[in-house]
Computed example of a mutant assay.
Amino acid sequence: MNSHDLLPVHTGTVIEDDSLTLEQLCHACGVHADWVISLVEESIIEPEGDDIHLWRFSGTCLVRVRSALRLQHDLGVNLAGIALALDLMEELENLRTQLKIMGHD
Rank of each mutant, 00 (worst) to 15 (best):
K100P: 03
E16Q: 11
N2E: 13
S58W: 00
A80T: 15
M1V: 11
E23Y: 05
D105C: 05
R56N: 05
H53N: 11
L25K: 01
S38C: 08
L39S: 05
D51M: 06
M102F: 08
L69C: 10
L6V: 10
Q72K: 10
D51Y: 04
A68T: 09
R70A: 09
G81E: 00
E48T: 12
D50A: 11
V77E: 03
E16M: 04
G59T: 01
W35N: 01
V36R: 00
H27L: 12
D18P: 03
M89S: 13
E23C: 05
Q72A: 13
D50H: 09
L71W: 09
A85H: 03
E42H: 13
L86S: 06
I52M: 11
G59V: 01
R56E: 08
E46N: 12
A80L: 12
W35I: 02
V36T: 02
M89E: 15
P8C: 01
P47N: 07
L84H: 11
P47C: 05
L62P: 00
D50K: 10
Q24K: 11
A85C: 08
D34K: 09
L54I: 04
T97Y: 13
V31W: 03
M1K: 12
D105G: 11
M89Q: 15
C26W: 00
L95N: 13
E90Q: 14
F57M: 03
L86K: 04
E90W: 07
V65W: 00
V9T: 10
R66Y: 07
R70S: 07
I15N: 07
M1H: 11
L79R: 12
L6T: 10
S58F: 00
R56C: 05
V9Y: 06
V40C: 09
H4G: 08
S19M: 11
A80N: 13
L95P: 02
M89N: 11
D50L: 09
I101S: 10
L84F: 06
A33S: 13
R64Y: 06
C61V: 03
E16N: 07
W35M: 02
S38L: 08
N94Q: 15
A80R: 15
W35R: 05
D74P: 03
G76I: 01
E41L: 06
S58Y: 01
G103Y: 00
H27D: 15
L62Y: 01
L62F: 01
L75I: 04
H53A: 09
S43T: 14
T11F: 04
I44E: 02
D18S: 14
V36E: 00
H104G: 09
R56F: 02
L69A: 09
R70Q: 09
E48Y: 10
L71G: 07
L62E: 03
M1E: 13
V14N: 06
S3W: 05
R64I: 06
S19F: 07
I101Q: 14
L20K: 08
L71S: 09
L79E: 05
A28Y: 08
L86E: 06
